[in-house]
Amino acid sequence: MFKRGLFLAVLAGALTGAVLLYITRPQPLPDDALAGLVADAARGETVFWAAGCASCHAAADAKGDEKLILAGGQRFVSPYGTFVAPNISNDAITGIGAWRALDLANAMLRGVSPGGSHYYPVFPYASYARASLQDIVDLRAFLATLPADATPNQPHEVGFPFNIRLGLGLWKLLYLRDGWVVTGDLTPDEERGRYLVEALGHCGECHTPRGALGGPDLSRWLAGGPVPAGTGRFPNITPAALDWSEGDIAEYLSSGFTPEYDSAGGHMALVVENTARLSPEDRQAIAAYLKQVAPVP
């Protein structure tokens, strides 16, 4: 009786493990997901700046055209370890020069590498999952116009158990969603702003607090939270705390100056460098969207 019970327990454990491995496996897009889409590198440049690619993947001290050399190397400290931005330049060996548009789409929308493994969500695919396939195709075309750089990638400094990437499938099961956070009857301008904030701009990655497993608390969307490195806080940018006018917000995203004549600092200064390259209409759309976010004290 004991042996039979032990056998059944082992069998049940094995079946449970097999099911868990199956439902948390990397799930790339279908091979024909991009069929019929025609790339436009000019539109891809807008996607590039809206998505903030250079802010993480260029050198930390890069200026001007150096922002377009996406050799990686920036370090991001978190409670789970230190993550190092990879080379996403046009180099075919150390960068993504050999990637297809579908490879980029799998990375940005599903968090899956060309080799079929999970990416860590420090790469903000939980936000990019809301992006359109057309924008990903256009972005890939623009990235192909940028310089190649052979700087080797550096490994992340992540200890046990977070170095076991299989567990990231469970994280995705819990937190990876492609639906909008702010819903309801929005104007076309507000919908464009929602797309820029919730998808490409991935503003919630910093401005939304996270739970113990690092997943965003969407009930406190954009309400601010601690900086992962352990010092300081990202501000609450819901209407409960951000009382600027739409014009003030749009101006800040253009010049970096607040209504009080203070200026953006830290990583936000890099964000403003990106939003300043967007059209005035896009900056206005972001401002209009932020006024529709639920106020969170």
Rank of each mutant, 00 (worst) to 15 (best):
57 H>F: 11
119 Y>K: 05
38 V>N: 08
206 C>E: 04
109 L>W: 06
108 M>G: 05
243 D>G: 14
272 V>G: 08
246 E>A: 12
19 V>D: 06
60 A>H: 08
189 D>E: 15
244 W>K: 01
206 C>W: 03
150 A>Y: 07
37 L>G: 05
175 Y>H: 10
34 L>T: 11
50 A>M: 10
3 K>C: 01
124 P>T: 12
260 E>L: 13
219 S>V: 00
242 L>T: 09
18 A>E: 08
173 L>H: 11
219 S>T: 14
12 A>L: 15
137 V>P: 02
258 T>H: 08
88 I>Q: 02
165 R>K: 13
156 H>F: 14
152 P>H: 09
220 R>K: 13
6 L>S: 11
160 F>W: 15
5 G>W: 12
242 L>D: 04
175 Y>C: 09
45 E>G: 06
99 W>C: 13
197 V>Q: 00
238 T>V: 06
88 I>K: 00
191 E>F: 03
167 G>A: 15
31 D>N: 14
146 L>G: 05
193 G>A: 00
144 A>R: 09
51 A>I: 09
9 A>E: 08
76 F>W: 14
74 Q>E: 12
88 I>A: 00
42 A>Y: 05
255 S>I: 13
5 G>K: 12
75 R>I: 13
169 G>A: 13
226 P>L: 11
173 L>I: 02
293 V>N: 00
173 L>N: 05
53 C>A: 07
1 M>N: 08
117 S>F: 12
6 L>N: 04
72 G>M: 09
222 L>C: 07
186 L>V: 09
262 D>L: 14
60 A>C: 05
78 S>Q: 09
150 A>P: 15
151 T>C: 02
201 G>M: 11
215 G>Y: 10
196 L>R: 07
191 E>G: 00
97 G>T: 04
31 D>T: 15
231 T>M: 10
150 A>E: 14
245 S>V: 02
131 A>H: 00
167 G>R: 08
114 P>R: 06
14 A>R: 03
260 E>Y: 11
166 L>P: 02
215 G>E: 01
142 F>I: 11
214 G>P: 06
246 E>D: 15
25 R>L: 08
222 L>Y: 03
224 G>F: 04
88 I>V: 15
226 P>I: 03
155 P>K: 10
3 K>W: 12
120 Y>M: 09
256 G>L: 03
142 F>C: 01
65 D>A: 15
197 V>F: 02
51 A>W: 07
229 A>F: 11
56 C>H: 10
36 G>W: 07
202 H>G: 04
19 V>C: 13
60 A>G: 13
241 A>P: 01
7 F>L: 14
